[in-house]
Amino acid sequence: MRLTAIAALFLRAGNLTFGGGHVITATLQRELVNRRRWLTLDQYGLAQSLAKITPGTGILAFCAATAWMLARWRGAIVAVVVASAPSAVFAVVLTWAFVSLTGSRPSQVVLAAVLASAVGMMWAAAWLIVQPMLTPPAWLRTVVMVVGAFVALSRWSVSPIAILAVAALIGAFWSSGEAP
């Protein structure tokens, strides 16, 4: 497998798609499995499952896993770098632009509206994490974890890492008939 071909694919999937991981995953599935047939559906599924249990940004773990299957470490490093570096440069430019907006009164109002929108979207992001886990048989455990974590942080200021560790421990022993 040529590294340039891998780089070109991950460069496009990682940087020309808006909407975060789900959109990038869908783009890569179409290219890797359906169009180019570089991976089988089973390989793709394994990479997706393992990316979910890898800490950090899941989509980058997914890129590393699939590219490792194609070209081992060289492929993984190339894929992760090209899938994220151009977006990172763009993020810096946007951050600079947003900071520059704080000069005039109209700019401040526009920025305030944009920041309010971000608050709404972050609440939505939390909702989108929870929503698929609110179905039987796991819904009760999900509600307990969400409410418990919310209260532990906002009311008692417990360390987020401690909260996540306790949640993982409880989850390991509170079986709800997990299906992969």
Binding site: M145, F150, G171
Partner: peptide, 28 residues
């Protein structure tokens, strides 16, 4: 990766991370 205990731990901590995200967004 499909072992129930491991899946349970991942899904519970994922749910907790959503609760943490909500709590972090309150002061913001």
């Amino acid at each position: 990766a499909d072992r129930p205990r491991l899946l349970g731990a991942i899904r519970a901590s994922t749910a907790a991370s959503a609760g943490l995200l909500m709590a972090a967004m309150v002061p913001i």
